[in-house]
């Protein structure tokens, strides 16, 4: 199993992602620069957090037009797993690889805090390390994480099981009080229609060490490692 992290000018959580992937996969992922037009042959492509192009114009907008994103779209089309975290989620929505859009937080402020997430499905390669309905703790750190989709799109992604995670209370209750950014239907992460592309605002990669914020995010990476274990090295 192999992974590549795509970085843009302004990416800044690739180090966190490298550590989490290395721990779970037993080897370091490749780093691919945005100006490259080809991706190495890998089982997992990750777009990490940060402020690609300073988030100028709109978060993720310019990165979505980078040369490398054409290659990412091709691989996604072929069924390769693609994970976008935080700014990566914004890039994937701007590139139309995921439905909806991420707007300025309802509170208008950057927010860095721990939240609880509810796992909506446990039958995807990204979430097979969790149980359905499991609640885990993991931090968010963003200014533009307010998920929005128009009513038609929302009905579709809800109907097709494309919601990956929802913000919730420690007990799993939903509600505005537990959603840090005003996201519609408390949505924290979504899949594409084929389920091989996942974007989420929270940072599971920053919750993979017991002494540094706990292990809430670890099952995501362990599950991916297990799902890809059969894949050629």
């Amino acid at each position: 199993m192999t992974a590549a992290i795509v970085t843009f000018p302004g990416s800044n959580r690739e180090r966190d992602m490298v550590m989490a992937l290395t721990r779970a996969f037993g080897k370091a992922p490749a780093l691919v620069w945005h100006r490259d037009t080809e991706l190495p042959k890998v089982d997992l492509i990750v777009i990490p957090g940060g402020f690609a192009y300073g988030d100028y114009l709109r978060a993720g907008a310019m990165a979505a037009q980078s040369p490398i994103m054409r290659a990412v779209a091709d691989r996604a089309q072929q069924g390769v797993l693609v994970l976008g975290v935080c700014n990566g989620f914004q890039v994937l929505t701007e590139a139309r690889l995921l439905p909806g859009a991420l707007m300025r937080n309802a509170g208008l402020k950057f927010v860095c805090r721990e939240v609880h997430l509810r796992v909506e499905r446990a039958d995807t390669p990204f979430t097979q390390g969790y149980r359905k309905g499991e609640i885990f703790k993991c931090p968010v750190a963003h200014h533009d994480g307010n998920y929005f989709a128009d009513s038609e799109t929302l009905a579709r992604i809800e109907g097709e099981g494309q919601v990956a995670f929802r913000y919730c209370s420690p007990q799993g209750d939903l509600g505005a009080a537990f959603t840090p950014n005003g996201s519609i239907n408390d949505i924290a992460g979504v899949y594409n229609d084929k389920g091989n592309v996942l974007g989420l605002m929270p940072h599971p990669e920053d919750a993979t060490e017991k002494l540094l914020g706990g292990l809430g995010g670890a099952p995501l990476f362990a599950g991916l490692a297990e799902a890809l274990a059969g894949a050629p090295a």
Binding site: L57, R58, A61, M62, Q65, T93, E94, G100, A101, M103, F148, A149, D150
Partner: peptide, 9 residues
């Protein structure tokens, strides 16, 4: 369409 606006929103 391509960059300056996100026509989703």
């Amino acid at each position: 369409k391509k960059l300056l606006a996100n026509t989703v929103i």
